[in-house]
Design a protein around this nucleic acid. Structure first.
Lengths: 248, 248
DNA sequence: CCAAAAGTGTTAGACCTACACCCATGA
DNA sequence: TCATGGGTGTAGGTCTAACACTTTTGG
């Protein structure tokens, strides 16, 4: 059974090497209606899904989310939602805030627990669920019209990410497993919204001692090939216990 | 009406000048039963309150919290809860995490939205609600036995506070309006769990330029009287827009 | 040989750390 | 006059910010 008053929304961030994007979703009204009719799990939430216009117009998009089932842990359910739409398992997910205004959706009370995911879009496969008309990446500065308070949720996720990324090495989840220092720097520049000095950035990040040189280089690039690094989680964890403070 | 599946819990932190404490609560079984009988708002949550032993033994304590009413915004409801137990209005409250494990309380599903409050206990008056047997401060290192997952919630609140306090000037809420530099330093030492060098701390905090000297001094202390300062929020906000980064 | 991005070092100033003694007050 | 905590400065090392040219690669 679904909990009528509780939903989970995932702000799925993807970094394509140049821009930070969010994965958004549009329901297919026909498939949605059919599911509402045939699946009695949806009994609890029918009125909201049946009638809200934003789920039926072509121009309004939503975050990837769902009402929580009675029997799932919220963290696990957020993983399920992410896996269901990207095909990725074991994604970095951060619960960042719960939105609890009493009139944030129409008809009845729904609080939503907000998570954000960091993924590298090169590796994922968008999976349409049975209700989906479209699923698409949007640049965070060019969001379409969004239903409910989803724009506020995305804004809040981004603010949270911006802080988080400065004090915790989570940005690596947005990159391929092997990445160049330029990719790493660009990711930070995009999230923080400012240019960083290339020489100072390299000195700083290399001094932190949890980048592993793979010995490999880029291939088939029309310029000097860059060295590829990987994030050394084990060493990072060890350094943490010794009191390292990560700071970009 | 109360939302059966959603509660709000407030970890109320108080700093007494020496230690960091948490305000905890014990129900009075007789008053509780009477309220359950007479107040039909409690219909939804009766089974949980009637039968769980932790609400009835003398040795188990709980956080200050309640099931959320259908019509209140969660943030506002957390304020109400805090006001109801401390008599203080306009308290610093931070929503820090939502606890959503499916079996965190018995009988039926309840997720709880966790907030923590920072108050100066000198100014507050504990107000017992109609259900209370006892309400009492506990030192964070000497917590009593707690019901449900409340110990985990307190631990998580403390971790969050520890991070928050280093990058945001929120610790001031734990102090009286006018405070000495030693009080400020002690507060940071207690939260961070480490000693700070007095001279370096003073240089650092004074350089930040949002402490106002009041011109007053302590009175009736058996030693040299310390100067009293106050936090200059306006100047802090101005400095923020100019790109200040606060860091203890 | 050209275009494009990779890669590298130095200097001046700011900041951090470690550390010890005198001062003001009330009892 | 004593006990208690308030208040202060310096020196050495580390970190930060600003800044421009050479190298490698593919086309």
């Amino acid at each position: 059974m679904l909990l009528r008053n509780i939903s989970v929304d995932c702000v799925i961030f993807g970094f394509d090497g140049e821009k930070l994007n969010v994965l958004l979703w549009q329901a297919d009204p026909r498939l949605l209606m059919q599911t509402l009719r045939e699946n009695e799990d949806y009994e609890q939430v029918r009125v909201l899904y049946e009638t809200h216009p934003s789920l039926q117009t072509e121009s309004t998009w939503g975050l990837i989310g769902a009402h929580a089932p009675d029997e799932s842990d919220l963290d696990a359910f957020a993983q399920e939602i992410t896996t269901g739409s990207t095909g990725l398992t074991n994604v970095y997910l951060k619960q960042f805030r719960t939105f609890g205004n009493s009139r944030r959706v129409p008809y009845y009370r729904v609080i939503t627990v907000g998570y954000y995911a960091l993924i590298n879009p090169r590796y994922h496969n968008i999976q349409k669920s049975s209700l989906t008309r479209k699923m698409q990446w949007f640049h965070i500065n060019r969001l379409p019209s969004l239903c409910f308070d989803h724009e506020e949720i995305i804004r809040a996720a981004l603010d949270h990410l911006r802080e988080n990324v400065q004090y915790h090495p989570v940005g690596f989840h947005l990159l391929p497993e092997k990445f160049t220092l330029t990719e790493l720097q660009t990711m930070y520049e995009v999230i923080l919204g400012e240019k960083l000095d290339i020489r100072n950035f390299r000195k700083k990040i290399q001094k932190m001692d949890f980048l592993l040189e793979t010995g490999e280089k880029q291939e088939n690039v029309p310029h000097r090939a860059a060295r590829l690094y990987r994030f050394d989680r084990e060493n990072y964890d060890r350094l943490l216990t010794e009191g390292l403070t990560f700071r970009i």
